[in-house]
Computed example of a mutant assay.
Amino acid sequence: MRIFGVTGWKNSGKTGLVERLVTEITGRGLSVSTVKHAHHATDIDHPGRDSYRHRQAGAVQVLVASPVRWALMHELRGAPEPPLDDLLARLSPVDLVLIEGYKTATHPKIEAHRAESGQPLLAHDNPTIRAVASDTTPDAPVPVLPLDDTAAIAQFILAEVGL
C-alpha cells in the first residue's frame, strides 16, 4: 500500500483537497482510503444510540454493521494514541492511502497553503514535504502547484508514489 500525506495549517484547505483528490484518483480507476488525524477528542457516535451505550458501559471495541457499511470504534481508555503505522496496518489493502494531518510523521506530503491564513510555509522546515499546493506563488524550496488544480496535484502524488 502506498501512502501520501496532505498537511498544512488549520484552514489551509487540507480537507477540501483530500476530498477532491479522492474523487480524482478513484475516477482514474485506483482504490483510495484516507486517514484523518484530529488533535481533539472526536466522536462519530451519538448519545442514546445503542453503540454509544455499549461504549459507555465499558466496551473496548464496538463494531456497528449494516447492509451498506461497517465501522469499528476502539476506545483508548487512557492508553496512548497508537502510532500512524499501527493504524495503517488496520486498513484493508488499497492502491493509495491519503493521510490528512500528521505534520511530523515521516511519510511524504504535499502542503496545502492559503495566503489568507497568514501562516508561514511548513515546507521550509519539513523535509517530508515534496510540494506545496497554494492559492498564491510562495517562495518555496519545493515545487508549487495551484491549490485548485486537483488533476495536477493528483498527477504529482501518483508520480511520487509510483502509480
Rank of each mutant, 00 (worst) to 15 (best):
T34E: 14
R49E: 14
L91W: 04
L30C: 07
A133C: 11
Y52M: 01
H39Q: 12
T23E: 15
H39C: 11
V142L: 07
G58V: 05
L96R: 06
I3M: 04
Y52G: 01
S51K: 00
G48P: 14
S12P: 07
S66P: 06
A38E: 13
D135F: 13
Q56V: 15
V97Y: 09
W70I: 02
L88Y: 06
A112G: 08
E81A: 06
G101E: 05
R69V: 04
F156G: 01
D86W: 12
G16N: 06
D149Y: 08
K10D: 04
L121F: 08
S66Q: 09
L122A: 08
L147A: 13
W9I: 03
V144N: 04
I157S: 02
H74E: 15
G78V: 10
D85C: 06
L96F: 13
K10L: 08
A131W: 03
A105M: 00
E81W: 01
R114H: 06
E24G: 02
A152M: 07
R114L: 12
E24W: 09
P67H: 10
Y102V: 02
G29D: 07
G16C: 06
W9F: 14
I25M: 09
R130M: 09
R2P: 06
V18A: 08
S51M: 02
R49N: 10
T137L: 13
E116Y: 13
F156N: 02
H40N: 07
P67A: 15
M1I: 05
L72N: 01
D148W: 08
G29P: 04
S66L: 00
N126Y: 09
H124V: 10
A89L: 01
L76T: 03
S12R: 00
P127M: 07
R28G: 05
G118V: 06
M73L: 10
L21W: 05
A152C: 07
P80N: 05
D149C: 07
H54G: 08
D50H: 01
G48I: 13
A38N: 09
G118K: 02
I25R: 06
P47I: 01
V18I: 14
G162V: 01
Q155H: 13
V161A: 08
E24V: 04
A79V: 04
D86L: 15
L91R: 02
T137K: 12
G16Y: 06
E111Y: 12
P93D: 15
N126D: 15
E100D: 13
A154H: 03
S92W: 09
L147K: 03
Y52V: 01
A59T: 01
L122R: 08
H39V: 10
P146L: 11
V32G: 11
P47G: 05
P146Q: 10
